[in-house]
Nucleic acid binder design. Structure first.
Length: 183
DNA sequence: GCAATGATTTACT
DNA sequence: GTAAATCATTGCC
């Protein structure tokens, strides 16, 4: 779960049709393919979850409820299906573009505080499934915003009622005091 | 081949 | 607070 905390403060960049947008990660959730029922790759390797079993550093896009794309970062190595879901970012670059995509006229929390709308704002969709996060379309940068433990809150995850005994695992990490985390 | 459902968001009662 | 929108993937027939 160390990687989940490391990702807080990192910056996601996307270059969609030549338009660059970026956001600082302020909320993540960890998923473990071997022990975690909430993970899509739990005890089953399918076509959809295939990317999680590969080398880390790639994007796993998941279309949820037919309308929202969730953006995950594959974190482990070949054969180990671990990933981190990015739930919220703080807009940094291309804010105008994000507002347009979200059909809003001014900057507010609703722009990127949520796993589905975050992908919307950054222009991510399932066509980015398996995208290399060191590539020139979608990539991560270390912006020296590393947080220490006392600045991070660990809480149970959200929207995984079906995961039974794993519902209460404190694998959701948020930056304390950030205005950009989801509700 | 077909029916069931979800790592959500938004709008409306 | 509750419900609808909406579709790729999954699992079973």
């Amino acid at each position: 779960m160390e990687i989940s905390k490391d990702l807080l403060g990192k910056v996601i960049y996307t270059n969609i049709d030549g338009v660059v947008t970026a956001g600082k990660i302020v909320e993540t959730e960890a998923y473990n393919g071997r022990y975690d029922k909430a993970c899509h790759a739990y005890q089953k390797r399918t076509k959809r979850t295939e990317i999680m079993y590969g080398q880390g550093g790639h994007a796993y896009m998941y279309l949820c409820y037919g309308m929202y794309n969730l953006f995950n970062i594959v974190t482990n190595t070949e054969g180990l299906a671990d990933a981190v879901l990015v739930r919220a970012v703080e807009p940094l670059e291309g804010i105008e573009t994000m507002l347009q995509r979200r059909k809003l006229d001014k900057l507010q929390k609703r722009v990127s505080a949520g796993p589905g709308i975050l992908s919307l704002a950054l222009g991510l969709d399932k066509s980015h499934y398996g995208e290399d996060l060191l590539g020139n379309k979608v990539w991560l940068e270390d912006a020296n915003f590393n947080y220490i433990d006392s600045e991070i809150s660990a809480t149970p995850r959200i929207g995984i009622d079906y995961a039974e005994e794993h519902i209460d695992l404190p694998w959701r990490f948020v930056v304390k005091g950030s205005e950009w985390v989801s509700k």
